[in-house]
Structures are given as structure tokens and as C-alpha cells.
């Protein structure tokens, strides 16, 4: 099935934007570590993962473009604040603290892993095909971040405390990844996606296994708060968006 019903196009764009915007801004924040991470080797590696995320975002913007006929850069750079659909954990400031960057990365990477695994089963083949491809790269990210979690958790008491604190700080934002994109029900009703009640528990058990091997924990609870997926963003997102658009917005129609 390649053609998408007219009335499903808006919900599909909402769904894809939530994914692509998450990836873009996570990559945006992580790429900012390039050149200043704690170890040169780690710097290089973290930058590779950031590039993957931006490349993934780019691929999903292209897919959105096939639905709404817009160009990827216009979608990525050309919206106003309340038109972005990412969860604000991706832009939450890490304050030059590696533990924060690692905690944020764990929550987001494992979430994306489960999200992509689910989208791989979609009935809409352009979505399932792309998700399946990206999922292969997402696996590398989960492995990589698990290694970091284990090394910080099992490093020394100082690093364990720092990691635990970062996990606690980011946990309330992590659950906001689960805020449903608008119109998701319509995609379920049309059997484009399966209604999936185990999403959160699957994600939680994945991170619990990883955290357990590092002797740290995550306490969090799902809420119904409306946030990024509804276009309501916090101060940190607004600052990230301003950076993203700084040059682009001087002439949105120019080629750069």
C-alpha cells in the first residue's frame, strides 16, 4: 500500500513530524559536543551518532515531503515554534555535563528503538520500509549508549552518583516522549498502525535491564501532560530553535 488516504495525511504528517523533529533536535544538541567532549575518541563517536540522528531526521522529512509536497529544509528549518512536534527532552540543556548527555541519549535512543520497531510493522509500506532501514542503525546507538551507561555506573562512586542524578533529572522529560501525536487514533482505526499498549512497558524494561547492569535506576511514571507533541515547548527548546534558524531565517528562500 503506497497511496495514503486523503483524510489520513494530516495524522501521518503529525506522526512523522514527532519522529523527525525528535531526531533533528537530539542530533542538534549532540552535534554541539563535537570538539569538546571529555575524550577525543568519545568525541568522535558521539558525533557519528549525532550525524546519524540528523540523517535519520532528513530521511523522514523527505518522506513527509512525499505527503505534503514540501522540501526537507523548509520543513526542518522553516516552521514557527508551535509547529514543531518534538518532545522537549531532546533539547533539554545538558549544561556541559557528560552524564546529562548520556542520560538524555539513553532515554531517547531506547525510545526510538521501540518506536522504529513498531513503525516497521506499519501497513503503509513507505513508512515501514524506511523505519526498518533506520532501525538497523538505531541498534548501534542502543549498544553504544549501554556501554557508556555501564562504564559510568560501574566506574567509581563519583561517576555513579553523577549518572544517577542525571537519570533522575531527565526522567520526567523522558516520559513526555510518550505523548501521542494528534490523530494517532485515526491511524490505528485505519489499521495503518497497530494499537499498542505495551510501548511504555517495553521501553521501561529495556532501560531497566541496561540500568540494572550499571547499578543505577530510573523512576518515572507516565502522565497525560500536553507538551511538545502538541506544539507546547519550553524555554530550552525555544533557544535551540533560535540557533537552528539563525542563519536560515536571514533569507529563507535563498540557497545556502
Amino acid at each position: 500500500m503506497c497511496e495514503l488516504d486523503q483524510n489520513l495525511q494530516t495524522p501521518m504528517v503529525e506522526l512523522l513530524l514527532s519522529l523527525a523533529d525528535d531526531k533533528l533536535f537530539l542530533g542538534h544538541r549532540n552535534s554541539d559536543w563535537t570538539g569538546i567532549a571529555p575524550i577525543l575518541e568519545a568525541d568522535i563517536a558521539f558525533s557519528s551518532l549525532a550525524q546519524d540522528d540528523i540523517a535519520h531526521a532528513s530521511a523522514f522529512y523527505e518522506l513527509i515531503g512525499t505527503v505534503n509536497d514540501k522540501n526537507s529544509d523548509q520543513i526542518a528549518f522553516g516552521r514557527t515554534c508551535n509547529e514543531y512536534r518534538c518532545a522537549d527532552i531532546v533539547t533539554k540543556s545538558d549544561n556541559f555535563n557528560w552524564a546529562n548527555a548520556i542520560a538524555r541519549q539513553l532515554y531517547c535512543n531506547t525510545f526510538d528503538y521501540h518506536r522504529l520497531a513498531r513503525l516497521s510493522k506499519s501497513n503503509w509500506s513507505p513508512l515501514s520500509a524506511l523505519s526498518k532501514r533506520i532501525l538497523a542503525e538505531q541498534t548501534i546507538h542502543v549498544d553504544h549508549i549501554s556501554t557508556w551507561i555501564q562504564h559510568l555506573g560501574n566506574g567509581n562512586s563519583d561517576s555513579k552518583a553523577r549518572l544517577q542524578e542525571a537519570l533522575n533529572t531527565f526522567a520526567p522529560y523522558a516520559v513526555m516522549l510518550f505523548e501521542e501525536p494528534e490523530g494517532l487514533q485515526e491511524l490505528h482505526d485505519a489499521s495503518i498502525l497497530q494499537n499498542d499498549s505495551d510501548f511504555y512497558t517495553d521501553w521501561k524494561s529495556t532501560i531497566d535491564v541496561i540500568l540494572n547492569s550499571a547499578g543505577v535506576t530510573c523512576t518515572c511514571e507516565l502522565t497525560n501532560t500536553k507538551g511538545g507533541r502538541s506544539g507546547k515547548h519550553d524555554e530550552d527548546f525555544v533557544r535551540s530553535l533560535a540557533e537552528l534558524q539563525e542563519v536560515f531565517s536571514t533569507d529563507p528562500l535563498a540557497a545556502w
Binding site: D32, T34, G35, I36, I54, S72, F248
Partner: peptide, 28 residues
């Protein structure tokens, strides 16, 4: 590195990140 977050297109953002990353790699 300061300009990675301000790069004005997806391609430029990817390429600039990769370039700065290469420099760190050369340093290493």
C-alpha cells in the same frame, strides 16, 4: 564547532559536523 548549531540546511549541518569531527579525529 560553534557554527554547527547554526548551519542553515540539513546538508550543511551534517557536513559541518562531519568536518569538525574529522578534525578531532586528526588530532587524536
Amino acid at each position: 564547532g560553534e557554527w554547527i548549531v547554526k548551519a542553515p540546511s540539513l546538508l550543511r549541518k551534517l557536513a559541518l559536523t562531519a568536518k569538525v569531527q574529522d578534525e578531532v579525529g586528526h588530532g587524536q
